[in-house]
Amino acid sequence: MDPTFPITLTVNGTEMVREVPVRQTLADFLRQTLGLTATHVGCEHGVCGACTVRIDGRIARACLTFAIQCDGAAIETLEGMAESGKIADLQQAFHRRNALQCGFCTSGMLVTAAQLLEENPRPSREEIREIISGNYCRCTGYHAIVDAVEETAEARAKSEPEGAR
């Protein structure tokens, strides 16, 4: 049996203390210990992006991070972002545009796209493609995802008065 260590961390705004086995990844911790199954596991070697979450505000691979490394960290998963309502427009654009099929890549895709739009509110199609290149999608061919992100950026720009940023 693996030795365990206690960690204190914040997940989707809730502070918690948990005992974690030393070799448990953050992805397994979220999925198995907390039941937060929006974070998917597609490769466990850091390539596919299905496990993308935010750690202290930055997107990261939950499969390449050990849970014990997250002592003191603030983790945000798609569940938290969705419940906060702050990406509702992005989710709706994905829905309208059918930018998902099986949905397995979708959590990671939304987390990545949300971060992109925070950092670069008016990305070009090429910039969108570049940023989401760390997230594989086997179903959609990406075109619709690019459309949905682009549409969200445009709508946000319109709703924000000029110079408000």
Partner: peptide, 8 residues
């Protein structure tokens, strides 16, 4: 699926 509530 967009809410992360898929059940795989």
């Amino acid at each position: 699926l967009l809410e992360g509530r898929g059940r795989y």
